[in-house]
C-alpha cells in the first residue's frame, strides 16, 4: 500500500449520499467490462447539486467534459459521507474517476464497508471537521502511516483517525485478499 498520497483536493459538504456519488439511473452499466465501466468514472459525483460541487465556492466540475477521470485524487467530505443505498457502484465510481483517498468527518456504514472490502478507495476519518479548512484545488498530502493530512500551501497539518480493526483489510487491498492472506479461503 502506498504510504504517502499527494494531490489536489475536491471538497464536499455533509451527507453526500450515494445518489449524489453515482445517480441510480447509471447503475445499469457493467462494472467488469473495461470500456463500459469507464462510464462510472464519467458520472462520478454527477448527482451533486452544482452549487455544492467543489466547496467553498461551488460550481466546480469534478469531471470535465467527456473525461472519465478527474484531476482530483483526494476527496474531503463532512459527516455521514456515503449515506443512502448499498450500491458498491459508489466507491467503484470514485476509483474509476481516479480517487485514491476520501477523508471525511464520518461515514455511513455500507459505503465504508464497500470502500474497504472492495479495496476501491481508502476511507479515512478526520479528527473533527476539516472540509471548511481546505478549498477545492488545494494541494494536500496524506501520510497513511502517521495519520495526517497536510495542506501543502502553508504546511498546516490535520490529524486523521487510525482505521482500527479494518487496517489489515485496507493494507491487504480488500476482503478477498485479506481472507486469502489469513488462510480463510484458498
Amino acid at each position: 500500500m502506498q504510504k504517502i498520497i499527494k494531490g489536489p483536493a475536491y471538497v464536499l459538504g455533509d451527507n453526500i449520499d450515494t445518489d449524489q456519488i453515482i445517480p441510480a439511473e447509471h447503475l445499469v452499466y457493467s462494472l467488469s467490462d473495461p470500456e463500459e465501466s469507464k462510464k462510472y468514472g464519467h458520472f462520478a459525483f454527477s448527482g451533486v447539486p452544482p452549487a455544492k460541487a467543489g466547496l467553498p465556492d461551488g460550481g466546480i466540475r469534478f469531471i470535465e467534459g467527456d473525461n472519465n477521470r478527474s484531476k482530483y485524487n483526494i476527496i474531503i467530505g463532512g459527516s455521514n459521507f456515503g449515506c443512502g443505498s448499498s450500491r458498491e457502484h459508489a466507491p467503484f465510481a470514485l476509483r474509476m474517476a481516479g480517487v485514491q483517498v476520501v477523508v471525511a468527518e464520518s461515514y455511513a456504514r455500507i459505503f465504508y464497508r464497500n470502500s474497504v472490502d472492495g479495496g476501491f478507495i481508502i476511507p479515512l476519518e478526520s479528527v473533527g471537521k476539516i472540509n471548511d479548512r481546505i478549498k477545492t484545488g488545494d494541494p494536500v498530502q496524506i501520510d497513511l502511516a502517521n495519520q495526517t493530512l497536510t495542506r501543502l500551501s502553508d504546511g498546516q497539518q490535520f490529524s486523521l483517525k487510525h482505521p482500527g480493526d479494518v487496517l489489515p483489510i485496507i493494507e491487504a487491498g480488500g476482503l478477498f485478499a485479506y481472507a486469502r492472506k489469513s488462510g480463510m479461503i484458498g
Binding site: L31, S86, R87, E88, I110, R113, N114, D117, G118, D165, G174, L175, F176, A179, M184, I185
Partner: peptide
C-alpha cells in the same frame, strides 16, 4: 445491507464479518 464484494464473499463462504 451490504455491497457486492461482501455478498460475493458470502456466496462462496456463507460468512460475513460484522462489528
Amino acid at each position: 445491507g451490504v455491497g457486492n464484494t461482501d455478498a460475493a464473499f458470502i456466496l462462496g463462504t456463507g460468512k460475513i464479518w460484522e462489528k
